[in-house]
Design a protein around this nucleic acid. Structure first.
Length: 431
RNA sequence: CGGGGAGUGGCGCAGCCUGGUAGCGCAUCUGCUUUGGGAGCAGAGGGUCGCAGGUUCGAAUCCUGUCUCCCCGACCA
């Protein structure tokens, strides 16, 4: 993609009103544009990141056996009357009538809708267990939206719902999501700490929040510092993590005993990027959902729900990965893999060499953002550092005369002068 | 929802107190020079000063109302 034909409105100055670094950088790097309090348009670069994150979330959900679907954003109020939440939910729910005067709402979550859909289709124990999910926009009319996409009113969320016949099955579904979450956040280049959260009437070890450690996080968490040493890639990680003390602040205050050895209790700020819980028959019972069991008797399915804040993750990743010059995208979510910087597009030799490199990279499946603008080198470097693509491939007349191009790693600043062939080989995974 | 702040070219701001027909930096356009870390010179375009009333010969400026946005707190996947 040529930058001269792209839509990438970057800002040199920090916009007024953006307080935290992720919000500032998202605006400056041309990822988002605000349209109302807590509501954002995703510009091309931001949209690419959002879609890559969603793809990783989807991959791990599929791997965990969850089945993707897509439910609407708009729901009828009657659905929520069945569970009793229409009155209980409060002003966070955006309600409005349609032209016929029917009461509608913009969904803040989908327990009711999916329970109703699944209830009307599942009739036998053979239809269970199932975990279904979708990735869809939600709306919660927050009293005070802030921090850009970190606490927006409209946000993209992956929400999964499990249906099981018995507590053991429910626990297994919960554990599958727990593991999927660890894999998801690791694939995103993040260290996410699972902490026990208030789990409501069911109690037990059945609600966890997943937090990215960051000083700007809105939550406070307490955990055994030994947790920092757990290798998330280890298959044993879920079991190890759940054996260690880790609590969301409210739960920590309530804990009867804190069995963390002295000096090992870490107290940190966290950004909540995921929340899972098991709530048994809360919705299935309220909404009259049962299936026929093996013995012919009705069984009320046990449910859990599992959320990941996809749009919030964009901000969380930036909070966790940036420097003074701008964003540093993890390879897995970067909007493009390589910034191809043509220092002298007006020089035919230079432009020719760059066009050839762009073609070869794209042919190899590498996403390239080719800066062919008629601008000075300093501006190009600054732009690319700001938007944070993992690699910068810098081509200028001086290097070309010596048969070299420069390859720079954004995260470390490490630079190598290479022949174009070896630069290509590095970027396309060759030797 | 309590408390505070702000709406003036695309962005960041000044002007308001003490009314007199709108300015600065960046960005944009044209030309020339420049070209490995956000260039220089010369010229140019772009704003019903959030909106609605009012006071006045005259309102960005004073008064009233209203809308929106931001910050702190409470609340919250």
């Amino acid at each position: 993609m040529r930058l001269s034909r792209h839509f990438l409105p970057t800002l040199r100055e920090t916009p007024a009103g953006a307080e935290i670094v992720s919000h500032q950088l998202m605006l400056r790097a041309g990822l988002i544009r605000q349209t109302a309090a807590g509501i954002y348009a995703w510009l091309p670069l931001g949209h690419r990141v959002l879609m890559r994150i969603a793809a990783i979330v989807r991959r791990e959900q599929d791997r965990a056996g969850a089945i993707e679907m897509l439910m609407p954003t708009i729901q009828p109020a009657d659905l929520w009357r069945q569970s009793g939440r229409y009155e209980a939910y409060g002003p966070e729910m955006l309600r409005f009538p349609d032209r016929h005067g029917r009461e509608m709402l913009y969904g803040p979550t989908n327990e009711e809708m999916l329970t109703a859909i699944f209830r009307d289709c599942a009739t036998s124990y053979r239809d269970l267990p199932r975990t279904l999910y979708h990735i869809q926009w939600k709306f919660r009319d927050e009293v005070r939206p802030r921090f850009g996409v970190m606490r927006g009113r409209e946000f993209l969320m992956k929400d999964a719902y499990s249906f099981d016949l018995d507590p053991e099955g429910g626990k297994a579904s919960y554990d599958a999501q727990f593991t999927a979450y660890l894999r998801t956040f690791a694939a995103l280049g993040l260290k996410a700490v699972p902490v026990r959260a208030p789990s409501g009437p069911i109690g037990g070890d059945l609600s966890h929040e997943f937090h990215i450690i960051a000083d700007t996080g809105e939550s406070e968490i307490f955990y055994d510092a030994a947790l920092d040493d757990v290798d998330l890639a280890d298959p044993e990680a879920p079991a190890r993590l759940r054996g260690l003390y880790a609590m969301e602040a409210e739960e920590h205050a309530r804990a009867a005993e804190c069995r963390v050895p002295p000096g090992r209790l870490a107290r940190r700020r966290g950004i909540e990027v995921g929340h899972i819980f098991f709530f048994g028959t809360k919705y299935s019972a309220a909404m009259g959902f049962s299936v026929q069991g093996r013995d012919g008797a009705p069984v009320t399915p046990l449910m859990g729900s599992y959320g990941i804040g996809v749009s919030r993750l964009v901000g969380a990743i930036i909070e966790a990965s940036h420097d003074a010059a701008g964003i540093i995208w993890p390879d897995s979510v970067a909007p493009y893999d390589v910034a191809l910087i043509d220092l002298r597009p007006d020089d035919p030799d230079c432009a020719g060499a760059v066009a050839a490199l762009a073609g070869q990279l794209e042919a190899a499946g590498v996403a390239v953002l080719h800066d062919d603008r008629d601008a000075r080198p300093g501006e190009k470097f600054a732009t690319m550092d700001l938007i944070g693509l993992p690699w910068q491939l810098i081509v200028g007349p001086k290097g070309l005369a010596a048969g070299t191009v420069e390859l720079k790693r954004r995260a470390t600043g490490e630079r190598h002068m290479l022949s174009p062939e070896s630069a290509l080989a590095r970027l396309t995974g060759g030797s």
